[in-house]
Design a protein around this nucleic acid. Structure first.
Length: 275
DNA sequence: GTTGAGCGTT
């Protein structure tokens, strides 16, 4: 699914100036794609135009369009237009930001947080990177927090170490909510070779990281680093003090072996061990 | 064969 984003004709690769699919509401059941197209092409070139239909081909009265240039999108959005004698509304679809993209994609996990840091502190610090939707700090404090942005694109740029109020904190991707065992959500094709070695703590730790790795891959298309794994373990209260090389030394190689089921089992042991 | 808030079979 690619609508030509790489063309970069109008700065559309910049996070806030990208064209997205727009929902067109209130289309006449009699209208066809050409009618919708004709209406919106007056504002700029479309790369996509579609009316949603049921199994019988009957229009469902709404559809989606996408412009090539952001200026065009700006011109039509949240305005009322007329197609075939009916007014239609154009909006950013809700499905794009909620259902289609999980909330955790817009969320960072902040670890090693001093207990005296407030939500306002975090808001103030991270707002220089992008608009913030929510800041969550558990009560009582547990040395971590979640910061949710409006745009998922800033998230991946923040992974690593940050200094907030003189304290070094670690930022990593947030795991899916209510799913510490959401290992089944990750593509098992990622893990298909070796068997995990239950005899070594190092391997246990490495396997425990695989959901985070996989999640990272799926969400951000990059290979996670040691720092990020560190963050992941802290999320679950695991002891990660000491050299980063410590329990993480063979994380990479182990990550690529083993199955999700195995990783899940080992992860359970891992958590027991650290209690 | 009608209708009129909603959210996308790929």
């Amino acid at each position: 699914m690619d609508y030509g984003q790489e063309m970069n004709t109008d700065g559309e690769n910049e996070p806030d100036r990208r064209c997205v699919d727009l929902i067109v509401l209130g289309i006449s059941y009699r209208s066809i794609e050409a009618d919708v197209k004709k209406c919106f092409e007056a504002f700029g070139e479309l790369v996509f135009c579609e009316i949603k239909r049921d199994a019988n081909g009957q229009s469902r009265g709404f559809g989606f369009i996408r412009f090539k240039n952001y200026e065009s999108q700006l011109a039509v959005i949240n305005k009322r237009h007329f197609i075939d004698g009916r007014h239609v509304d154009v909006k950013i679809p809700d499905s794009k930001t909620s259902a289609h993209e999980p909330e955790c994609a817009r969320k960072i996990f902040v670890a090693r947080l001093p207990d005296n840091i407030t939500p306002d502190d975090l808001r103030q610090y991270f707002s220089k990177y992008g608009a913030i939707k929510d800041v969550y700090i558990p009560k009582p404090a547990r040395s971590f927090a979640f910061v949710t942005f409006h745009d998922s694109n800033v998230v991946r740029t923040l992974f690593g170490t940050h200094i907030i109020l003189g304290c070094s904190v670690t930022v990593g991707p947030a795991e899916p909510k209510n799913k510490p065992s959401a290992i089944g959500d990750y593509p098992s094709s990622t893990f298909k070779r070796a068997k995990p070695d239950h005899s070594s703590l190092r391997t246990l730790t490495a396997y425990g990281a695989s959901p985070a790795h996989s999640h990272y891959h799926q969400q951000y298309g990059q290979t996670p680093n040691t720092d990020m794994m560190h963050t992941f373990f802290q999320q679950y209260g695991a002891t990660t003090t000491g050299s980063p090389k410590g329990p993480f030394s063979n994380a990479q190689q182990s990550y690529w072996g083993g199955t999700h089921e195995e990783a899940a089992a080992v992860w359970q042991q891992q958590q027991q061990h650290y209690r």
